[in-house]
Design a protein around this nucleic acid. Structure first.
Lengths: 226, 226
DNA sequence: CGTGCGCTTGACTTTTTTCAATAAAGGTGG
DNA sequence: CCACCTTTATTGAAAAAAGTCAAGCGCACG
């Protein structure tokens, strides 16, 4: 598939006139990464941002002792690492592939040029950053105001939504990674899962989860049930 | 002072041609709020964003049980609550004055119009959102990967920077509010302060803090010293 | 000068982390 | 396709960090 056709699928570029799409196609660089590959590290100079074509990317903060907190996981169609394009010049976090992935790299200066000539693109990017702020604010809320079982219940319900409201859902990421996303340890996550299963809210086998009592799970997520 | 002169001082509007500045002046609304006044609540429809002229504003998330996590505190010159202007239509958090405050309200549709005609303004707003993402990512990092004394030490050093690197600094906000900002309880904050004082890193009397051992405080902030 | 709110302190509980050992799962090469 | 080996997940027990409850103190404000 040609780059320009891929670009036409990206929400950010929806409605971009074909000649500008062509321009984008000429400045982007396609890059592939194997699973577990570091894409950039916090503090690296950010000369552009990325768009996921295939695969899955985690963006995370690392503590000196090696513990990590995932800020976000990105899948196909999603742009990430835009922050250094617009403010500062260094990446505020690190990024790594969770699977073999194919990315487009969009160089900073060329993209800024384009945005200056196209207000719709600017508004599209503003919408993306605004949504990201919403998500990060929700993560802060989770970490500061909710306990692990609440966060886990919320994540399961969210995944269920993502998967067409199915009651049988897949965790999508390894449990260790989920622990890093929920801001806890694998041990605590494991115990939280067991607790939900004991309470007959879910049935769990490996990365496959079946929601047995959606109402009850929602109550846990909201803190109405301990 | 006239609105247009106030606007000219706001970083976001730096470099805006005078006629567009005039346009902004015509669409903004000046509003004053007493201390402790709720400006908007999470979930309210956001018809525009605000700019602080005077005073201090906290933006926060509230748990059902009343606990709160402050996401950010804004002072003069800073815009806030831009998220619903660009994505979704509801505020993702609540906002309240910490002091008597004077704000400018910038209505959404008029501002979007303006931004469509002015790429520099769009880039300015992108830079603001990008910086905010950086700050929120740092807050997530603090909450997930650092203990309370580390966060407190980092806050004290940050305040010292803000106050021209002075060793004698003011907390700027009430301790109860600082606890909500650092993601902890007043009790735990109190104990953390006493611990730093016991270790002769700071001397504290009320909201006045004197840094006695900056190096040591930095070590605490980085987790090199327990 | 009193009153009240915010801050501090102590005692206790809960949640989560950490350490260690075991069990299960997944990938690789024979 | 199976056996092995490495990685990942689970479980138990103990420790640490922070939260909660309750009481006392003190400063600021009326």
């Amino acid at each position: 598939m040609k780059v320009i056709d891929l670009l036409a699928q990206i929400p950010l570029f929806q409605g971009l006139p074909p000649e500008q799409l062509q321009e984008v196609a000429q400045i982007v660089v396609e890059r592939t990464f194997p699973k577990q590959q570091l894409i950039f590290q916090e503090g690296d100079e950010g000369k552009g941002f990325y768009i996921v074509l295939q695969g899955k990317i985690k963006v995370f903060k690392l503590a000196p002792d090696g513990r990590e907190q995932i800020l976000h996981i990105f899948g196909p169609g999603e742009p990430f690492a835009e922050v250094p394009v617009f403010a500062g010049q260094q990446y505020p976090a690190s990024a790594m592939t969770l699977e073999d992935s194919k990315l487009l790299f969009v160089p900073r200066t060329a993209f800024l040029d384009l945005i200056r000539r196209n207000p719709a693109l600017a508004l599209g990017m503003l919408a993306i950053l605004a949504r990201r702020l919403r998500q990060l604010a929700a993560l802060v809320e989770d970490l500061a105001l909710k306990e692990v079982p609440m966060r886990l219940a919320a994540y399961l319900l969210y995944q269920s939504e993502e998967q067409q409201g199915a009651s049988e859902l897949s965790l999508e990421i390894a449990k260790g990674q989920l622990a890093n996303l929920l801001g806890t340890s694998p041990e605590t996550l494991s115990r939280a899962l067991r607790r939900l299963a004991n309470d007959k809210l879910i049935a769990s086998s490996g990365a496959r989860i079946k929601i047995l009592n959606r109402r009850g799970l929602q109550e846990v997520a909201l803190g109405l049930r301990r």
